[in-house]
Design a protein around this nucleic acid. Structure first.
Lengths: 181, 181
DNA sequence: TAAAGCATGTAAGAGGTTACATGATTGG
DNA sequence: CCAATCATGTAACCTCTTACATGCTTTA
């Protein structure tokens, strides 16, 4: 999670730790403490994915290595467990510029089916409940909210998918009739 | 997190571990692995918050002790760190029946201000971005989505707050004129 | 009878948190 | 000059995950 974020930010420009955290929290992506950020930088350095540059004053800037770039590309296109994916999907989207259009489409569709599955579960939970008489108002409100959120997110994803498809089509144009998807 | 969920479910009826997990995932509250659930039950038992009942076959059912009930009430009404609170809020809502109306109102308002803060941040991030020319479509879509989600959630909370207020007013009726909030 | 689901548990490890320690630089 | 912010780092701890081990019961 943190790794993906750090590699992604370093992919553009070198940054030092403090700055990385500022950007992460400012963009609302991830709020990590320094106690996890600095060890993470160490780990990534040890794995040869990033390397420290000049030390301007007390600032220790890191840049992405070639191996780091390959590893970033790999994890950007690899799906995580469901719980993880919830938080990671935003991260992926933020770095979508580093994915090829086909990979974008794949990522979006994968996410879509996750949400559809969740929506199904949420609806099931909602349907199941009214049978047992005295379910409290807030529990029901919560279940309905879960359904509503899932629906809204799916709608949003559909827009993104449409957009990604148009990009994809520009990249790999095909005959007007007879294309298959 | 898990503790709150387990104590909350045991608050009504005794349950064994497997069953607890089934309910948790089925309701879409929390999907935990057994590798975290069983150790959690052990911890809670050691702390005297729950105790094992009869062992029906291989099933080991636990019930909430008096201390457990007090501790549950305490953490249900205590706020966590922001990251934690995101996941924990749904849990609180699911167990709202165990909170007094005034505490409900407090919880909802606390959550509301968190979301308002987040909305402010999200808007700021969105405003900041267009200055730098070439920000990619998906990043912008993400930032807008963050804003939209926060707004929707605040609206939802406002409904819940209105409901909680009416409950509160029923509990502690006051003169029609001159009440202050 | 084999597969799927029920049921409990342990071990190793990943990845985060808070709290602490240290000290430079900037702004009111 | 004091406070806030910048800047890096360590140590102890917590909670979760995956993978493994075990074995019963139900159903196709």
């Amino acid at each position: 999670m943190l790794d993906l974020a750090v590699l992604g930010l370093l992919r553009r420009h070198p940054h030092h730790g403090y700055e990385l955290r500022r950007q992460l929290t400012e963009l609302g992506f991830l709020r990590v403490s320094f106690g996890s950020l600095y060890p993470a930088l160490r780990r990534l350095e040890k794995r040869g994915l990033i390397e420290a540059l000049r030390q301007t004053g007390r600032r220790k800037a890191y840049r992405l290595t070639d191996r780091g770039e390959r590893e970033f590309a790999r994890i950007l296109d690899t799906d995580a467990t469901e719980t993880e994916e919830d938080r990671r999907f935003s991260m992926r989207l933020a770095f979508f510029e580093y994915l090829e259009p086909p990979a974008r489409l794949r990522t979006l569709k994968r996410r879509r089916s996750q949400l559809v599955a969740r929506l199904t579960d949420a609806r099931k939970a909602l349907r199941k409940v009214p049978a047992e008489a005295s379910v409290d108002h807030y529990t029901i409100a919560l279940l309905k909210h879960n359904v509503g959120t899932a629906e809204a997110d799916i709608g949003w994803l559909d827009e993104l998918i449409a957009h990604a498809r148009s990009e994809h089509d520009v990249d790999t144009p095909r005959m007007l009739m007879g294309g298959h998807r």
